[in-house]
Simulated assay, not measured.
Amino acid sequence: MTQAVVVDDSHFMRTVISDILESDGIEVVEQAADGEAGVAAVETHDPDVVTMDVEMPRMNGIEAVEEIMATNPTPVLMLSAHTDEGAEATFEALEKGAVDFLAKPGGEVSTEISAHREALVEKVRSATRADPSSVGDVETDDEAIEADHEYVANPTLVVGASTGGPRVVEKVLSDLPREADLRVLVVQHMPDGFTERFAARLDRRSEYDVAEAEDGMRIGGGEAVVAKGDYHMEVAGYGNGRLRLRLQQDEQRHGVRPAIDTTMETAAEKVDGPLTGVVLTGMGSDGAAGIEAIKAVDGATLAQNEETCSVFGIPARAIETGCVDRVLPAEEMGKAILDTIRENG
């Protein structure tokens, strides 16, 4: 039986979360009221998964995640307030090693959490499949990345990721030099309210100008967008080296919106210049059809390898299509992307 530790400073939230998990056959071996007690509970019980609040006394969730990863690496699911402060704290926790997060509906002490029971259970079960040992700093071979500066004109890159993705996406974009002049489309499975903050983090940490996607937006070389949470992002047009985007709320695909497949398929249809598709760590099969579409128009296709994935789902399904050109560790993805757009490649 799957075993969990529930960490939250609200007795109400601990009780509700525990009841939801146990009603689905997940045994809650201990409830902890702060990060310090949560770290001790993980050491004592060695659970399969931890649900972790962010704001707590004595030791907050970010500090607790860092300590757990240092002493007893365990998949951690963050439960975050749906606020700007909650979003920023969540990304810090993901940097420290948390594998995924769920936004609490209604705030820190959420009376609405029961209505989201399916999402909570799905996230917890997904987290148990994550490999916490794959979480850590991704090293980069800077010399290899800077070895050649001759790139093709007007290249487009589509990157898709889910569980464990934010840290890897951030590293991949930080490894792309501005002179490569890519138009970058990022689809990270993430709810509305978090994608804007994620885009801001990518903007600070890369040479590209990164923003959350807007309907009708046009992007050119050196610019990147993050698909807006709860909206599919389509490439609606392409001309003079610029992409035109459309956001829509058609039904979910693979149970998610935005879907990687939607962006990749429309990019394959509309972009007539160099096109590269990349699938990174995550649960499910979203991205497999998109990779097939990009390969069908002679685009380049890359997938993250199992050893560096938190969850080897999305890349595995893409690889199974037979349409992936190269399978690489996360730390080599930046160089591999640049290899696909070199004049001599």
Rank of each mutant, 00 (worst) to 15 (best):
V39F: 15
V39H: 13
V39C: 04
V39L: 13
A40F: 01
A40E: 15
A41T: 11
A41I: 04
E43T: 14
E43I: 14
T44V: 13
T44P: 11
T44D: 15
T44R: 15
H45M: 11
H45V: 09
D46C: 12
D46H: 15
P47S: 08
D48G: 07
V49F: 05
V49I: 13
V49K: 09
V50W: 04
V50H: 11
V50M: 05
T51R: 04
T51D: 03
T51I: 08
M52F: 02
M52Y: 05
M52D: 04
D53K: 10
D53H: 01
D53W: 04
E55R: 12
E55Q: 15
P57F: 00
P57K: 11
R58L: 02
M59D: 03
M59W: 00
N60R: 06
N60Y: 05
N60E: 02
G61C: 03
I62S: 05
I62G: 02
I62M: 00
I62F: 00
I62P: 09
E63A: 14
E63K: 13
E63L: 11
A64P: 08
V65T: 15
V65G: 04
V65K: 01
V65F: 06
E66F: 05
E66A: 15
E66H: 04
E66G: 10
E66L: 09
E67N: 13
E67I: 07
M69G: 04
A70D: 13
A70M: 06
T71A: 11
T71C: 01
N72R: 12
N72V: 10
P73Q: 05
P73G: 03
P73M: 07
T74W: 03
P75E: 01
P75S: 02
V76K: 07
V76N: 09
L77P: 05
L77N: 11
L77F: 05
M78E: 09
L79S: 08
L79H: 05
L79I: 14
L79R: 12
S80C: 13
S80H: 01
A81W: 02
A81E: 13
H82Y: 11
H82S: 11
H82C: 02
H82A: 10
H82R: 12
T83L: 03
T83H: 06
D84P: 09
D84C: 04
D84I: 12
E85A: 15
E85Q: 15
E85R: 15
E85I: 11
G86K: 03
G86E: 04
G86C: 08
E88Y: 02
A89Q: 08
T90I: 12
T90K: 10
F91M: 07
F91H: 05
F91L: 00
F91G: 10
F91W: 07
